[in-house]
Design a protein around this nucleic acid. Structure first.
Lengths: 352, 352
DNA sequence: AGAATTTATCGTAGCGCTATTATGGGCGCA
DNA sequence: TGCGCCCATAATAGCGCTACGATAAATTCT
């Protein structure tokens, strides 16, 4: 059990031996060479059934757990995918990460998670550590990154996937949808419901570039549609929460007394706006129509049920996984297939 | 040509060289030995300021990114913490993971994420892969695990922290709170509001043991309090969503016509119940009082604002991080300090 | 049958880094 | 002036595994 550390000068150098069972042990027990064990673990079909069985038995007898760290070093690429999102607390990204993790786990890939908190410098630091793991791929959120981040990634040669946004030039590959188009869809929908004084309620738009793009897409569509339409963009500097939604609606009503339609950059904000309307006795959708974004858990069930734009976070996760796995299997997508548009869907419910 | 290699093994084997800049390159440029670079990276104070500066310059000139895989192999323990939660989509765990990730990142530790989806076998598989990374610690959710999982972890010698639950015998360390006590608190609160026909609305309780424990704590407290109190536990087999909350409330009213108080195993369920009451014109809290669990984003802002029990997921994250970091710094907590009770707080609002 | 393949298995050199011991030069103290 | 001691730095031996070629054995082709 324990080694006395006092009277041992036998061997030239004592090195901490921690790993209990190594591939070598398995090989000995199975009476094959370590290479064969390694081969069996990676491509079971390449070894004879007899040897395979013997190895499998040895593995289970010894309770062998492969050391992926050593494997990653030897193979010069570890079975890890690094994912960097602004915040996992955000239900959008939670969904994507969850799907992605599940898809990758099925192929034996691990997910390493990082939160940039919408900070480019923080993101760069995360990318740096991510690359320290020689990951099979790096997944980032959005297309806006510091030049340092881009350089690091380009120099590394690791496949990079930017998700949740398309419409710019990706570092390598991109999976997502156009945020200006989402804003435009929301505007068109409100205008189709006779909206004439409309507003976009967003949060943290100074940092959340994607929300800002939805807002500008919204404003542009409103401007394009008709000149007798007034349109405002209202930002809450803090996080996108239900409470922020209530505050934003109050501010919107103050600025635009005849407000008749709002689009929110997040369903949580929309829910807060809905609550605020309820408090003030404002009828939704008769007096004010509300469009959200995200189609979160509660959006179909709230009162009134929320018209919202569904970005399909799980589809993004699936597509990202597909690209990563294709890359691992040697198929490197080229040209237009390096950018995947997952689109968006406007789900019409009672709030408009 | 060059195929003649029978009796001369002069030419060393060609190995794919992928890493662009290694520690060796840095050492050369800085005119010190690789050991010194390594030492500088790990304990900057141990090298002379002159050498340190030289090394720092070399690192930035070359754009050196340390290879943590190699480091992990040499050090026999990687700078990785593996976290396994049922689902990151659940706002509770998202909060904890987010906090934990931030705290650990500050100390240079990476988070590897896995989702068990409330399955013990799936959890065991995740633990197995987790251990392949020789992680600095493994974090699990709850105290219920397969015997295989327990064995694997015990045999590995890796620090293990079980979070979000205490009250049983942890594998190694635990940070969380007592779920039966949460249920009891909810029951006491409802009873203090003159509740006489109360119910616990839960989801997925066949798999979510912690929710089940809250339910049984609730029922026991109700039974203990008075015999003229009727108490039911109602389960929805699917996920804990707002919609499930509406369904559960409907079922509760069917089973208990004079229902006057409910506790929900999750604020989403509570919100659904609130919506259903609104739809049916049932006054909350006058006719039915509602207690939630989680104190989610919307709980303070909904109508009526939700009385709920706050489990402080971020505090759990912080404490878990503290234990892990203590372990890394060599301080191994012993005895009672291996179990940390983060408690719970009942936040009284308008719904009761 | 002998040559030319194919197939299954083995031997071994690192992957890039850290831990440990070894070394040498500067310093205090007598 | 000399002795030991400490501190900064260097040398060295792996960590456990995979890739790459080599080798032996089995198979097919002339």
């Amino acid at each position: 059990m324990e080694a006395d550390s006092s009277l041992q000068d036998r061997v030239p150098r004592k090195r901490r031996k921690m790993q209990r069972v190594t591939m070598m042990d398995v090989a000995k027990l199975a009476q094959v060479s370590p290479s064969t064990v390694s081969l069996y673990l990676r491509k079971p079909a390449a070894v004879s059934p007899a040897a395979g069985q013997e190895i499998a038995r040895a593995i289970s007898t010894l309770g062998y757990v492969p050391n992926l760290v050593a494997g990653g070093l030897a193979a010069a690429s570890s079975k890890v995918v690094s994912i960097i999102v602004p915040s996992i607390r955000n239900a959008f990204f939670a969904e994507t990460v969850s799907t992605l993790q599940a898809e990758l786990a099925a192929e034996g890939l691990q997910v390493i998670l990082g939160h940039s908190e919408y900070g480019e410098d923080q993101e760069e630091a995360l990318v740096r550590t991510a690359l320290s793991w020689a990951p099979a791929a790096v997944v980032l959120t959005g297309l806006s990154h510091s030049t340092g981040t881009r350089k690091l990634l380009q120099a590394s040669g690791v496949p990079v996937i930017e998700m949740w946004e398309i419409g710019g030039k990706p570092i390598d590959m991109a999976v997502g949808f156009s945020h200006p188009q989402v804003g435009a869809s929301a505007a068109r929908h409100l205008l189709s419901k006779e909206g004439r004084s409309i507003a976009f309620l967003g949060a943290r738009m100074q940092e959340d570039h994607r929300a800002a793009k939805r807002a500008s897409g919204f404003a542009e569509e409103a401007k394009r549609a008709a000149e007798h339409v007034t349109c405002e963009i209202i930002n809450h500097p803090g996080a996108a929460t239900v409470e922020a939604g209530s505050l934003l609606l109050s501010r919107a009503l103050q600025q635009i007394p005849d407000l008749d339609g709002i689009a929110c950059s997040n369903d949580l904000i929309a829910l807060g706006a809905l609550f605020e309307c309820q408090r003030r006795g404002i009828d939704v959708p008769d007096r004010i129509a509300v469009v959200g974004f995200g189609d979160l858990d509660f959006s179909a069930s709230c009162i009134p049920s929320l018209t919202t734009i569904r970005p399909s976070g799980d589809l993004i996760g699936k597509e990202v996984a597909r690209l990563i796995l294709a890359g691992i299997h040697g198929e490197h997508p080229t040209g237009a297939s390096r950018i995947i548009d997952t689109g968006h869907v406007l789900v019409e419910r009672r709030s408009t």
